[in-house]
Nucleic acid binder design. Structure first.
Lengths: 118, 118
DNA sequence: CAGTATCCTAAACGATACTG
DNA sequence: CAGTATCGTTTAGGATACTG
């Protein structure tokens, strides 16, 4: 009805929020990136993500698994090993990661141009 | 040096984290979207973002302004009006928003296929 | 209209230690 | 190695009320 003026506003916001709900926080995308680069083991992932702790990594891995973005496999080797691998679904996030990577790279240059930053 | 194997992992993670630092949270991108759709006034923005409160909107607007993504203009009219407009820099976020929009739309279909969701 | 002031809860994040 | 336990701090976010 009537003036469909700010209706299309919601149409854009809603899906973006859905996406944000999944990748929210500092860690989820970095974890996906690390695994996509071939780091499958818990300690290996941990070592490759600056500042992350076991506790946070553990929690985030569970979240990502719940969102069907990765799979946890336990191998009955000697000793038992655990591997995290991305699902095909996680690959659909690549355009998001690329857009963020591109923007973040540019942004970093921009802020380094004017002031300091970690 | 030696095995530069997980070095490129950081090269990807860092810019992504920089981007995430800026757009983090549920509200920043929705706010940018609302403003980009022509909603410039505080109440107008507020009305077009489901569930946001004055307090949160106020805080997020300040954050976005600090990141140079939008500009707050006060017009000495009768009564005083305030307008928020995006900076040209905010437009560089469009590919990010589009990627998120596309993925979020697909994701919503995916989860609606299997279970319920808000 | 354009916000601010309080108060509050829940979640994120972090440090350190510990277990099978 | 692959985590969990415990603790504490910080931040995001929400409810409600209020101001110029």
């Amino acid at each position: 009805m009537g003036s469909g003026e700010h209706k299309d506003c919601h149409e854009v916001i809603m899906p973006v929020r859905d996406a944000l709900d999944v990748i929210n926080g500092k860690w989820k995308l970095p974890i996906i990136i690390a695994i996509s680069r071939g780091h499958k083991r818990f300690r290996d992932i941990e070592r490759n993500i600056p500042k992350i702790t076991s506790k946070v990594l553990s929690k985030e891995l569970k979240d990502l698994e719940a969102h069907k973005l990765l799979k946890r496999s336990v191998y009955d080797s000697q000793p038992v090993t655990v591997e995290y691998t991305l699902t095909p679904y996680a690959a659909t996030l690549n355009p998001v990661i690329e857009a963020l990577y591109t923007w973040g790279s540019q942004h970093r240059k921009t802020i380094f141009g004017s002031q300091d930053q970690d």
